[in-house]
């Protein structure tokens, strides 16, 4: 389960933001993406997760191998914690939510509606969803937002267990998780506006699609 990114150029709203990206994520490894706000980390993660097409280059990974966690957790406020998790478990074809409830200390909250949780608890529930997907490659966008120190440790433990089980994780974050992770700074790959001018006007329709 290796994720390989080859000479990738990505765009946001038709304007290239990052170009010439090269990296490989092996099974059992974590890769931390760093870079200033607005440089295109979220766009990169969305491209890798398949939500938007790259301008050029390739994202190579086995099909149906990635679990994506975005800024928003995708929770339904009127469903309980257990119902939210059970829904995603059904969608991904894994039946048990027990490990996810225990891994993020959600067991005492399991009958509470997700709308009544605090921001940190919602985030924990959103991250617990990763455990029920059963997918080997985690694509995480700022996973520790609104988590306290204890919950960050829970999350780091979950990632460690995932890596030990042969999974891998691509994480965009600004804090130190205490993981054995490689760091990839996307700052130097910022697209040069002039060099991409031609390719943008050549594919002008892209701006409208």
């Amino acid at each position: 389960m290796t994720l390989t990114v080859t000479d990738l150029t990505i765009s946001r709203g038709g304007i290239p933001v990052l170009e010439g990206l090269h990296f490989t994520l092996e099974a059992g490894r974590a890769l931390v993406l760093r870079g200033p706000n607005g440089v295109g980390k979220t766009t990169l993660l969305r491209t890798i997760a398949g939500l938007q097409p790259p301008v050029s280059g390739d994202v190579d990974a086995p099909p149906e191998s990635m679990a994506y966690a975005a800024h928003s957790d995708g929770l339904k406020a009127t469903l309980s914690v257990a119902e939210n998790l059970a829904f995603w478990a059904d969608v991904f074809g894994t039946k048990s939510i027990e490990a996810a409830l225990d891994g993020f200390k959600l067991r005492e909250l399991m009958d509470r509606p997700a709308g009544g949780l605090s921001a940190g608890q919602k985030r924990r529930l959103g991250l617990a969803r990763l455990l029920v997907t059963g997918r080997p490659i985690w694509i995480l966008d700022e996973p520790t937002v609104s988590l306290d120190v204890e919950s960050v440790a829970l999350f780091a433990n979950a990632v460690r267990a995932h890596l030990a089980g042969g999974g891998s994780a691509l994480i965009a974050t600004h804090i130190d998780l205490g993981l054995e992770a490689d760091v990839f700074d996307v700052g130097p790959y910022r697209a040069k506006a002039t060099s991409n001018h031609d390719s943008f006007s050549g594919d002008f329709d892209e701006g409208f699609l």
Binding site: R46, A49, G50, L51, E64, M66, A67, Y68, A69, A70, H71, S72, D73, G74, L75, K76, A77, W88, V91, F92, G93, R129
Partner: peptide, 13 residues
């Protein structure tokens, strides 16, 4: 709005 459409798009469905 709550992001579940993104997650559904990356799901096996």
């Amino acid at each position: 709005e709550d992001g579940s459409l993104d997650l559904l798009a990356t799901s096996p469905l």
